[in-house]
Design a protein around this nucleic acid. Structure first.
Lengths: 300, 300
DNA sequence: CCAAAAGTGTTTGGTCTACACCCATGA
DNA sequence: TCATGGGTGTAGACCAAACACTTTTGG
């Protein structure tokens, strides 16, 4: 039999196949007024969730997502579903991870190609038949407990209990995720296990946890932080984005020296309130050019 | 209809589904004797290929891989197929990327979850019915041409023509890959296109190119280089691994200071040949602990 | 006035680079 | 002996943390 004949008689139907879905963790940083006229608005990392219109997990909150169709790449499907379910376009979706645990979806063997995206909150949100509504939830992910054990002479284990909290108005969705990292000389393995979960559909708590971890790890060696900001911004704006995501305070003088190459001063200023007004800056596009090569995203 | 009823009547068969495959790019660094008694063996980055026993691409060389079965994660499938086709166990497989272009496999809609792994060449290679044989190919990936154009005021494009060459004895497989990076303020996209290809099955030239890019990008901020080395090694060994993969010479004095925290001197030495003998070192496991947290791999 | 933020300068200590230099081996 | 690799020291440039300090704003 030659290749042509082989291909003619080959029938995919004869082989077990999963359904293929995409799930998108879209992040933004939103500002919440503090009430104190002197103080700047507080910034919060937020993630975009939809309320599911259909079974399973009807009426629960989930990441936007859906099934990949024939003649689509996963990237195309992700962009299509994101626009259908939330109205968001023009984001830079990047592949995060494949989740393929056989039990992850009650409907059967459905694997998820997950994506993450960073965006400014400007685009208005819409919905569709699969999603009653799409809304931003503020998002905290902190470590409750951490413990390091030396398993054998050459193998360590780090065990964390992390808490994910998603909030919107008076609604609160929480999950506790156990992260186990096993480090040996020739191997390194990280497992995420959702041990408690209220209100989030599927294994989406796990996907969000992975996405936040990736975001934090990449932040300092990428220019991702700028994606959360509008065209012009103050140096304090960008510093607060870093502080919000990394969860720690940075020294202003040092931070400014570090990002100086990536920004260009404009001739405009903020209108201040109770304190000195700030210069507005914009991205230094040429500096971005050299840096971004380091962080490669693949697309079909 | 409640959720139970919904799940009862839900039938995956009614929806279009792709086949799901895994492909593994396994790298190693091999040494080739130079003939000159004074000189050290030359190191070469190598990738593991199999000769396909079955259609399609029968008798051509491909990455080890295969289909994911029900009740398996992609990680399990990758480990299983790698052992079946090549005999290699105990590697640290990490997810690389999903390739889902509709045309990528002549058999139909088959998407590939690709993995990469780094290993020392010690395990012997076997084969199975899907693979006539598994062999190491030395591997070079260089840029032939590069050109940067400023598309619009705020968008750049970097276009590269890269050549991938895989060699074994007198066999040579080559491919030319066009890498187009588009960088704009709010978007960043990298596309890989195989424009010439002799002897490599499927889109595996593209997968190997992505894997080498990932390897190079991660090398300097990870401890990956140590994975190519045995328990004990000389400082020149580890320096040469860096030089081989990065494709440039490093200054010995500086390199040694940089890796000093990651190694511990043993009381053994190499038996030298025509030059001074070298101290043998081993990994400093505790230093690895702190560093590796940065590079997270997920596993089910 | 003053709390809050905007913004600058300086000290100290480390790390990175480039290069010069000496040591050891065995055909 | 000498090509080849093993290994160390150092001057200068640069980078980063910590902290002190000044300026501006509007209620």
């Amino acid at each position: 039999m030659n290749e042509q004949e082989f291909l003619k008689q080959y029938d995919q139907q004869h082989y077990p196949r999963p359904s293929l879905a995409v799930d998108m963790a879209v992040f933004s940083v939103i500002r919440q007024e503090t009430g104190n006229y002197r103080k700047l608005p507080e910034q919060k990392l937020s993630v975009l969730l939809i309320e599911r219109a259909e079974h399973p997990f009807q009426n629960q909150w989930a990441l936007p997502g859906g099934f990949v169709l024939p003649n689509e790449t996963v990237e195309t499907a992700a962009r299509r579903e994101l626009e259908e379910e939330t109205g968001i376009k023009e984001t830079d979706l990047r592949q995060l991870h494949i989740f393929s645990e056989p039990e992850r979806d009650p409907r059967g063997w459905i694997i998820s190609s997950s994506f993450m995206a960073l965006t400014e909150i400007t685009q208005s949100l819409s919905s569709c038949k699969d999603a009653k509504q799409a809304k931003w939830f503020t998002c905290t992910y902190t470590t409750l407990e951490e413990q390091t054990t030396q398993e054998t002479e050459s193998s360590y284990q780090i065990l964390q209990r992390n808490k994910l909290t998603l909030q919107r108005n008076d609604m609160e969705l929480t999950a506790v995720i156990e992260v186990k990292q096993t480090l040996s000389l020739y191997n390194r393995k990280t497992t995420y296990t959702v041990v408690e979960n209220t209100g989030l559909a599927f294994d989406h708590a796990k996907i969000i946890a992975c996405a936040i971890t990736a975001l934090r790890n990449d932040l300092e060696r990428s220019t991702d932080a700028f994606r959360f900001l509008p065209e012009t911004f103050t140096l304090t704006d960008i510093q607060q984005v870093y502080e919000t995501i990394l969860g720690k305070k940075l020294l202003t003088a040092n931070f400014r020296r570090k990002i100086a190459p990536y920004v260009i001063q404009t001739n405009r200023q903020t209108t201040a309130r109770g304190h000195r007004s700030a210069q507005l800056y914009k991205r230094n596009k040429t500096a971005f050019l050299g840096k971004q090569i380091l962080q490669v995203t693949h697309e079909a």
